[in-house]
């Protein structure tokens, strides 16, 4: 089966995100006074083959913890869906 994994990697909540902070302040000065917080992360799309969804999830989880995220400072989350046939 072919799957698409949609992965989001973010800095841990406890860590100051200087880019997010810069964007928050820019939005504020543009007049968006309601903006409380901005956090910037990465979205990664991986297409892969796996026997079933469980195996797919397991593989993606491993990819995340080994390479796609650095768990010292980042957290990750993902969803997988079956890719429609061609």
């Amino acid at each position: 089966m072919r799957y698409v994994a949609d992965i989001v990697v973010k800095l841990k909540k406890s860590i100051l995100d200087p880019q997010g902070e810069a964007v928050r302040s820019a939005l504020g000065s543009m007049g968006y006074t309601g903006v409380q917080d901005v956090r910037i992360g990465k979205r990664i799309e991986v297409r892969l083959e796996a026997a079933n969804e469980a195996q797919c999830r397991q593989a993606v989880d491993e990819m995340c913890s080994r390479l796609l995220a650095n768990t010292v400072m980042e957290t990750y989350d993902f969803s997988v869906r079956e890719e429609p046939g061609e």
Binding site: I15, L16, Q19, V72
Partner: peptide
């Protein structure tokens, strides 16, 4: 060395970006 886990910690962007 940090990424390889041979030293503790991680590196973030400079606060100035």
């Amino acid at each position: 060395l940090l990424e390889a886990g041979m030293l503790p910690g991680a590196m973030l962007k400079n606060t100035s970006c």
